[in-house]
Simulated assay, not measured.
Amino acid sequence: MSDVSILVLVGSLRSGSKNRELAEAAVDLAPEGTTLTIFEGLADLPFYNEDIDLPDSAPAGATAFREALAAADAVLAVSPEHNGTIPAVLKNAIDWASRPFGASAISGKPVAVVGSAYGQFGGVWAHDEARKAFGIAGANVLGDITLSIPGSVVRFAETHPRDDSEVVEQLTAVLAATVSAAREAVAA
């Protein structure tokens, strides 16, 4: 079976982000034959504006992002929750990914959304909103793949997520299911 490429989008730009650490753990736990790559350019995406999204002159950051999406077999979004909803940086990325609508790099691509937040529900509202936005953008949202880790600031205060056996077990299952969906999509 050919290798599977998963593009990882981190919905937090903050240094020391617990969701960044969760994304790093996912990279470390990549199943054999799978490559996870954290996209480092979300901060370089201007706010989506149709006036600057022109076929031959879209901003360089948007072009790089769309090329990375097109090259990936699946997407793993790892996100916190900001004020009860999806962080602006992730929503903006989804907006760029959605164009041209119906023929974008995200169209039909398997997408799983996971993450952690300080609150008692682990960012579940943001994860649900991200799934909704990805679905409207045309992605094949893997709604049955969930992982929302509560209390991230306390839980990971002195422990990296990759050193938390419960998180490793859950994240390993998320990755296996995402890889399976990616292989099904490529085979179809």
Rank of each mutant, 00 (worst) to 15 (best):
E129D: 13
G143V: 05
P31Q: 08
V27H: 01
L171P: 05
P31T: 15
N83D: 00
V113R: 04
E166P: 04
S116T: 13
E50W: 05
T34M: 08
L13K: 15
I136Q: 12
S57Q: 12
K109W: 00
F134P: 00
G11P: 06
G122K: 06
S5N: 11
A181H: 03
T146F: 07
G122H: 10
M1P: 15
P161G: 07
I52H: 08
A173H: 04
A117I: 03
A88G: 13
I136T: 12
G108Y: 09
V114C: 11
T85M: 01
L142T: 02
N92F: 10
A72E: 11
A88W: 11
L22T: 02
V141F: 03
L42S: 10
V4L: 09
V111H: 04
A93I: 03
S165D: 13
L13E: 10
A139K: 02
P80R: 09
I94A: 06
S57Y: 07
V167N: 08
V75S: 04
V78W: 05
S17F: 00
N140K: 09
G135A: 11
A185R: 13
A130Q: 07
N83V: 01
R14Y: 11
T146Y: 01
D51H: 12
N140H: 15
E184A: 14
I86W: 06
S57A: 10
D144A: 12
A105F: 06
P80Y: 07
P55R: 13
A58G: 08
G102H: 07
A70Q: 15
A71Q: 14
G16P: 09
R20G: 09
F39M: 02
S2M: 15
E67T: 12
R131Q: 12
H127Q: 15
R99L: 07
F65W: 10
T146D: 05
A181Q: 01
G123D: 00
F134W: 14
W96I: 04
F39V: 07
E50D: 15
A117T: 03
D28R: 13
A97I: 13
A71L: 08
V89T: 09
P100M: 10
A30P: 00
D28P: 03
A30T: 05
A176E: 09
F39T: 04
A182R: 06
Y48D: 00
A173K: 14
L142A: 10
A117W: 06
A188Q: 11
A139Q: 02
L147D: 02
P31F: 08
V154Y: 03
H160Y: 03
A62N: 10
V111L: 11
A30E: 05
T178C: 02
